[in-house]
Design a binder for these strands. Structure first.
Lengths: 350, 350
DNA sequence: CTGAAAGCGCTTACAG
DNA sequence: CTGAAAGCGCTTACAG
């Protein structure tokens, strides 16, 4: 077998065609599983493909066919388990459908988001899944993304969304409802002085959760104090630092609805540092149900958002949009579910 | 300004050229910043690019130039913060150098790893960063990846590595040294009965850490019991479940060197469930220094591997390899550093 | 059932 | 300083 495997460059359809005496076109048909080609020809070509170690050049095919086989995934922060699990779900569903994930991280910077989107777009993704950085503005995103490639907004809205952007699909969590459930749960346990802890109020998800909390308090006829609304970055560390804001005044709360699990876990740490036992001396709830929530000490009552499942869902939604580019834009609100664990104890009997 | 912005398809170099009365070649030169083109021509072209909202088609350029601007990143499990932080570091460094990250997750399955590598390769990455799934075999990986595209092995070795694969670069952690440091630290604190907890002994990183533990014990003249070596999946949950294996026999240990932080945090949970206070009744150490380690209760003594920094380093190493495809393969061992926190208490005075 | 030819969007010598 | 032409690796009507 005098082999003619080109070395120093990739093997192409030409090499295969030459290798078994057919035309490029025939090899292409074999690759694409066309029924037109003769069984024996097919077998000969397939042998040759294996023998030369041919690897399909999908970029070339995409260029010719004006198609794309990638989807861009743009996230703030993979170090946040919520996004990491989401990304895993996206990649899983995209991979199963033959798409590849183009990853980009923005680190919560709208400027980096612009740069990342611009760079990913040059690679011609069929669609984009974007979880916007804080302060990311609709017109900026539109300016760089344009209207050609479909975008799915996940988790947060953009600043200054205008009606003309209605063609962007959205996958959001039912933030307000979730926070209301958590608050109602604490109220049912007997708490009256309940704080809303963490997050920045200029993020839409935070505002929605805050609204759910306020709604539940109002409905139950409970007052809320301004100093019970403590803002902080949505990270464990900052939450731990800000814990004192809850206790440095009169009228100390007995419980807190936290913006998310990261913040709740940070608050637990802050409580411990003050000699308070979370789940015994102070009740709290999270949001997201990241893997650590169930394993906290104590386990954290929270709202399950099933981030990995949301990732799969997001992938389905963009792929669906590719089929129907002109259909009306879709706003999906993913349900959330209260998961009661030990952290949401009754108030201490003082 | 009678604009001729093509609608329904992307705008190409042709559109720009036609739009301002120059040739495609000139537009291309402008895009690539060539000094050859006249200032006024350049300005006219740049205006037109903006006006029509041109976006560069990097895939077409790559095809023509036989170059690539993507790197594949193949990981087990983004839900593990160690890998998530690593991925963030990789994407950051690649992005800064103008590469895009092609993501693929294997879920610790060698079969999925094959499929993922195959699919990513069709997109023509310039290089691959692979953290192998358990039981991933060298010859399998070679079969799908071939010798054309450079591969960087991160974190784990492949099964059955042969000398001919020596051309694959490696970035490993100093596992043995790290585990030895942790063990010596516990010994210095006064422990004599020390367990090695978690991980699967058929993963190279686990074997290396185990070796470091055994070395330190032997050097200190301490015995080790077989039942002090407890295997479990490298997850929090499984570690919590396996905790009892440490206590269900005679000669119970007073401390454990854990395979990694996830396992250590799981063990803390298991200890709590048995009424033992980690960091007071039982000492333990982790490995990785993921973000949660410092925020555990108690904070976890561990080995800092700086996963995000490792990610940047991995990106640098592949990009370096692209410059020098023929240079001898490089084995990089990243240093690890003991970070002492409260979890590694002295043994309880009984 | 198979081949010759055109073209996807770009780059790059080569003339002029 | 600018343009005409060839070609990267593939696909797809169109003939035969």
């Amino acid at each position: 077998m005098s082999s003619h495997i080109p070395i120093g460059r990739k093997v192409t359809l030409n090499d295969i065609a030459a290798g078994c005496g057919v035309s490029r076109a025939t090899v292409s048909l074999v690759l694409r599983g066309s029924p037109l080609v003769n069984k024996l020809t097919r077998a000969r070509v397939e042998d040759e493909l294996r023998r030369q170690g041919y690897v399909y050049n999908r970029a070339a095919a995409n260029l010719r066919r004006s198609t794309s086989s990638s989807i861009a995934l743009v996230l703030n922060d993979l170090a946040n388990p919520f996004f990491a699990e989401f990304a895993e779900g996206v990649d899983e569903a995209l991979g199963a459908a033959g798409f590849v994930t183009l990853l980009g991280c923005t680190g919560e910077s709208a400027a980096r988001e612009q740069a990342v989107l611009g760079s990913l777009l040059e690679h011609g993704p069929a669609g984009i899944i974007l979880s916007p950085a804080e302060h990311s503005e609709a017109h900026q995103v539109l300016a760089v993304v344009g209207r050609r490639v479909p975008l799915l907004l996940f988790n947060r809205e953009l600043d200054g969304t205008l009606p003309e952007f209605a063609h962007w699909d959205q996958l959001m969590l039912d933030n307000q409802h979730g926070a209301r459930l958590a608050t109602e749960h604490l109220i049912a346990r007997g708490h009256q002085r309940i704080a809303f802890f963490g997050g920045h109020h200029d993020s839409s998800s935070c505002r929605q959760r805050l609204a759910g909390y306020l709604e539940a308090m109002r409905t139950a006829g409970l007052r809320t104090e301004p100093h019970w609304q403590v803002e902080c970055a949505p990270t464990r560390l900052d939450a731990a630092h800000r814990t004192s804001a809850l206790f440095d005044t009169m009228n100390v709360p007995t419980a807190a609805v936290c913006y998310n699990d990261a913040v709740a876990l940070g608050l637990m740490l802050g409580l411990n540092q003050r000699g308070l036992r979370p789940g015994q001396d102070f009740a709290l709830t999270g949001f997201d149900d990241i893997a650590e929530a169930a394993l906290g000490m104590p386990p954290l009552t929270t709202l399950s958002t099933a981030p990995q499942e949301r990732g799969r869902q997001a992938a389905q939604l963009v792929m669906q949009r590719l089929q129907q580019p002109l259909a009306a834009s879709q706003q999906t609100i993913a349900p959330v579910q209260l998961v009661v664990r030990e952290s949401s104890c009754p108030p201490p009997a003082n």
